[in-house]
């Protein structure tokens, strides 16, 4: 019961943050509501027992990535976005279409309940030692490949953002 209450409370904050992200016109407000979404998602991960994922969600997503976003917004001095004819049509047609689609998806998921089961709070303890064992044994090759990917991304970012002479 408590699990359901916490899930609903933080799920509502999550959805409210996502809708606020779409409603705001200034990018810095959107960035702050995205941080709210990420923070409440970290709580949802914690409810599922994924402690490691919850912590890296806060450190990497809400910390590192969003700092990068806010930094870019301030660097480029981004102002309010301009509305165009195309975006007005997109809002008029897109929002009702989105609501219908969401209603259908929710109806199908709740009706069918694919795995027909419930998830208990902390059903699967995702502690760092177990994740690390899996990561460095079964997923060693993907892990090494992502390190190469990160290296290439760093070099690409430096090359792209460099001033041309």
């Amino acid at each position: 019961m408590l699990h359901l209450a916490l899930f609903s409370f933080f799920g509502a904050i999550c959805v409210a943050g996502a809708i606020n992200l779409l409603a705001q016109r200034h990018p810095i407000n959107s960035a702050l509501s995205l941080i709210v979404v990420m923070g409440s998602l970290a709580v949802e991960f914690m409810l599922l027992g994924a402690e490691f994922v919850a912590v890296i969600q806060v450190i990497i997503y809400a910390g590192a990535i969003m700092v990068l976003f806010v930094f870019t917004i301030m660097l480029l001095n981004a102002g309010e976005e301009e509305r165009s004819a195309g975006s007005r049509i997109a809002v008029l047609l897109g929002v009702p279409a989105l609501l219908i689609l969401m209603g259908l998806v929710a109806w199908v998921l709740i009706r069918q309940n694919p795995a027909s089961g419930t998830v208990a709070a902390g059903a699967l303890p995702g502690t760092p030692p177990e994740i690390g064992r899996l990561l460095f044994r079964d997923f060693l090759l993907p892990f090494e490949i992502t390190s190469v990917l990160i290296l290439i991304a760093i070099m690409g970012a430096v090359v792209l953002a460099r001033k041309e002479h």
Partner: peptide, 12 residues
């Protein structure tokens, strides 16, 4: 106990 579908709906 929260049904799995609730999590999937939130994710969707």
């Amino acid at each position: 106990m929260v049904p799995l579908s609730y999590y999937l709906v939130l994710s969707a």
